[in-house]
Amino acid sequence: MSKTTMKILLYIFLWLLPSCLSLDNGLALTPPMGWLTWERFRCITDCKKYPQECISEALIKRTTDIMVKEGYLAAGYNYIAIDDCWLEKQRDANNRMVADRHRFPSGMKALADYVSI
């Protein structure tokens, strides 16, 4: 087979490839879109020094409200994730991780309920 024939076959294959790999089922029409604490705030946990930037219940609620108010939800953003730096340094009596009681005074369940409304 000549090099020209091989190139033509390769181009045809590459042209057909996208239609072969996608399903027309309505799923993933946009990429997963959300907000992650780590993207902007890394592991800022000192709420006395950085009250507006520390990973806390207030930050997550404020971000949730902004996402709804400014149209991010309508644009397809559908999750908020607290990547890291949300927990106490010590586990509870059952050896489970627990949210920092000072930065998340209502607990994670209440915060998740707030975000999902």
Rank of each mutant, 00 (worst) to 15 (best):
P51Q: 02
E53S: 07
E53M: 03
E53K: 11
C54W: 02
I55V: 14
S56H: 12
E57L: 02
E57H: 06
L59V: 15
L59K: 06
I60G: 05
I60T: 15
R62H: 00
R62G: 00
T63P: 01
T63V: 07
T64Q: 02
T64R: 12
T64G: 08
T64W: 01
D65L: 09
D65G: 03
I66K: 09
M67G: 05
M67Y: 04
M67C: 10
V68H: 05
V68I: 14
V68R: 08
K69Q: 15
K69C: 09
G71F: 06
Y72G: 12
L73V: 15
A75R: 14
G76V: 02
G76C: 08
Y77D: 04
Y77M: 13
Y77F: 15
Y77I: 12
N78Y: 01
I80G: 02
A81G: 10
I82H: 04
I82F: 07
I82D: 00
D83N: 14
D83T: 14
D84V: 04
C85I: 02
L87Y: 13
L87C: 13
E88Q: 13
E88D: 12
K89I: 05
K89L: 12
K89C: 09
K89W: 07
Q90T: 15
R91G: 00
R91V: 05
R91I: 01
